[in-house]
Simulated scan of single mutants.
Amino acid sequence: MRTLAMKILFLCPILALSLNACQQGPVRYTQNSPEIDTVKKVISNYDTKNYDTSMFADTSKTYYNTKDNPLSSNEAIAYHKQADSEYASRGFGDNHQEYEMVVTDEGETWVNCWLTWKGELAANGKEFEVPVHLTFQFVDGKIVQEYGYWDPTPIVLELQKIEAEAKMMDEEQTE
């Protein structure tokens, strides 16, 4: 009987540790969440040129290819509207979209997405595909920060080329 009692005393702590190890803590990584759904809505709104800022906190900051000089949500809309004038069509394709939500060690909630942007210049019909990474920080269900990173170089060079050609044509006509 004493041996049985010692076995039970020995096995109880192991069982308790095993049960404790099986308990899940808070979700720190997921590919399905209300925050991801919000980001998908932001992307859909961009694609349809529905510039709705209701998902953003009043004090949100947006950074595109920089860590300095953030844009307010209204300034970000103005940025997109100005850029839209350069394109016959533009948007994110449905293929190769990846979304994840993470909760950092500090308790911050971020949604990351990797997308492919496609656009056709209005001036000459040239098409571009650009990989884009966006990350959004959420507080109380609202976006408080957005960071966007992509390489605009091919598009900028093409726009400069178009501008130079137009200038040359203007100069030839004035001669």
Rank of each mutant, 00 (worst) to 15 (best):
D58Q: 11
D58N: 12
T59Y: 09
T62D: 09
T62Q: 13
Y63K: 14
Y64I: 13
Y64V: 12
T66D: 10
D68G: 01
D68P: 00
P70W: 07
S72H: 03
S73I: 02
S73G: 08
S73V: 05
N74S: 11
N74E: 14
A76Y: 15
A76I: 06
Y79C: 00
H80F: 04
H80G: 02
K81S: 14
Q82E: 14
A83V: 02
A83E: 07
A83I: 04
A83W: 13
D84P: 06
Y87L: 13
Y87C: 10
S89Y: 13
S89P: 00
R90A: 07
F92W: 03
G93M: 10
G93R: 12
D94R: 09
H96V: 04
Q97I: 07
Q97G: 06
E98Q: 10
E98V: 06
V103D: 01
T104H: 11
T104P: 10
E106Y: 13
V111D: 02
C113V: 11
W114H: 09
W114N: 05
L115Y: 02
L115H: 02
T116F: 04
T116C: 02
K118I: 07
K118M: 10
A122N: 06
A123S: 15
K126S: 04
K126N: 11
K126F: 03
E127D: 03
V130G: 00
V130C: 01
